[in-house]
């Protein structure tokens, strides 16, 4: 009983996060400005990270934590570089 509750709510949560990812993808493709696309990319990273955490609970394994952390760190560096690029037009000054 308790396993079924957890299983179903994890499934629903993953579907919701998937819908969120589609929404950020729409904003990334649609634009209209470059900063909107970068903002959507940043949100996409975070939702992917949370999706990995729910996957970790669902498969009862902690392997996904390292992946989630890597996504978080790389997402941060990537977005900072892109924002810097918007400001000046070059990443390395």
């Amino acid at each position: 009983m308790s396993v079924a509750i957890l299983e179903w709510s994890l499934l629903v949560a993953q579907v919701m996060l998937g819908v969120g990812m589609l929404a950020t993808l729409y904003r990334m493709v649609r634009g209209p400005h470059a900063q909107d696309r970068i903002l959507a990319l940043d949100a996409l990273y975070v939702v992917a990270l949370l999706l990995l955490v729910t996957l970790g609970i669902r498969t009862n394994s902690q392997v996904y934590f390292e992946l989630a952390m890597l996504i978080g760190l790389l997402g941060f560096v990537g977005t900072v570089a892109l924002a810097k690029f918007l400001m000046r037009g070059e990443v390395i000054e």
Partner: peptide, 16 residues
Amino acid sequence: VLAGALLTMAGCLGLV
């Protein structure tokens, strides 16, 4: 998990 996913989804839909 459900409340967190709902908040995250609402944020992403807000982006649209």
